[in-house]
Design a protein around this nucleic acid. Sequence first.
DNA 1: TTTT
DNA 2: TTTT
Lengths: 155, 155, 155, 155
Amino acid sequence: MAGVNKVIILGNLGNDPEIRTMQNGEAVANISVATSESWIDKNTNERREVTEWHRIVFYRRQAEIVGEYLRKGSKVYVEGRLRTRKWQDQNGQDRYTTEIQGDVLQMLDSRSERSMGDYQPSNNYSRANTSNQAPTQTTKTQHDSTDFVGDDIPF
Amino acid sequence: MAGVNKVIILGNLGNDPEIRTMQNGEAVANISVATSESWIDKNTNERREVTEWHRIVFYRRQAEIVGEYLRKGSKVYVEGRLRTRKWQDQNGQDRYTTEIQGDVLQMLDSRSERSMGDYQPSNNYSRANTSNQAPTQTTKTQHDSTDFVGDDIPF
Amino acid sequence: MAGVNKVIILGNLGNDPEIRTMQNGEAVANISVATSESWIDKNTNERREVTEWHRIVFYRRQAEIVGEYLRKGSKVYVEGRLRTRKWQDQNGQDRYTTEIQGDVLQMLDSRSERSMGDYQPSNNYSRANTSNQAPTQTTKTQHDSTDFVGDDIPF
Amino acid sequence: MAGVNKVIILGNLGNDPEIRTMQNGEAVANISVATSESWIDKNTNERREVTEWHRIVFYRRQAEIVGEYLRKGSKVYVEGRLRTRKWQDQNGQDRYTTEIQGDVLQMLDSRSERSMGDYQPSNNYSRANTSNQAPTQTTKTQHDSTDFVGDDIPF
DNA sequence: TTTT
DNA sequence: TTTT
């Protein structure tokens, strides 16, 4: 047992979240978040920018919050860990997808911005939060080496 | 321009570094670093562990240092950023590989450990460092938005 | 030479920035940023919250940007390093103050929010940026161990 | 509720840990960890180095692990959060001390290094771990906003 | 493929 | 696909 595997992403969602329900009834949310770097190209003296897209997955209560409060364009801060999944394409070839398993989610849009848009809660994942007020941070219970228990996360 | 794209990895190399030289003569180093998580499976009450492998790339002087001082088994701390490259397989299909572009490298093996092993500097990338003493941290000059200049990094 | 000393703060300014000019004409900006944690007190079943205040200092161009674009209430993401300064109080006793030396600054208010308020640029630190458009990220050139040069930072 | 307050320290202990027991019988450990930066002074062309000392506190089981396995000189990776405590000196004047409350601890010395030294477990804080084998990472259970409960941490 |  |  060793190591640190930590990712910090701050950026905007490129699309509405995709929400699924696992066999056991728990929610899974996938979001795609953009970060970008820009610099001046010394040859052309022009500003250049490159955008990186990050696929992030949240589980359970955090997935519910994602589904409730995030939309295309939302700005978020995410802490998580890298996870590479192996799968097979239609030809039976091994393929790999790297994504970020989210551990901490912080919404960064002001309340006014959230309510300005065409905000329409479109799912029923809200369980504990019956008010119309978004939590702005959720921290997943992390696993202590002594009390973490295997769950249904498929990795 | 927006966002934060940061990765922190602390783990051990699974293999010796792979060192290449770019067309312009600059060095590129690839390393594969393992991190692992472990927990107690509450169903079986057994300890379980999952290992994650991270592909990390360093350029220029940092690549040289990687080639000089790191070996299979070396423990390192790395700060970097995620970068997904698109490429085509032999069938012309789009494929994606996510790797970490290293910005900060800190070697964590004690000097005694470095010298205990079958340490054999096997390349000639050392330029500025003629002593036999490994630097233990290297921080790449980061690009200020005003002075970063396009270079030959292929992304 | 060894180690990692990194701080990540995301929060809101409690006051307008304090801007000073050093003897050599370079700008210094101090900001005070709040972060808070909240939880349910299991004894009283009430929500409790504790706020932590972080004193952060920026130099030179970043200090200018702070002075231009940040105000009381602004939300910021900051990466920096801890620095404890020793000083003497009026009784000649040693006193210590820990602050964060900012390396990366990311403004998180939307443009509309920035322009909505009683925004009044009140200083003349802007040098390179003559447009009215705020940069949203600034990354200070970091020092490579080989090319960092002593400057006038008093620590 | 808002914000991120995160510190990452990688360095060596300047002294053996100080271990105390709280009124409720739980352990508290204080360690002092050094990080250093070095650079070339462009005026004198000499190498300069500045060392920063970080006071870090761990509670409960992590405090026990600190007491068992860390010693002066040990190399550690710590993730935690900043916390400034107010207290009064003998003259009744307000004083402030900033320390890092540790959340994650990773020991970075190899087993051989740990056993090579004059290692003498000198306390009885070990509860769950009866083997002589050090865990190398411990992650404190973090508080979900819904399930964190007030404890006796004095802040 | 590492390490514990 | 976002944002600036």
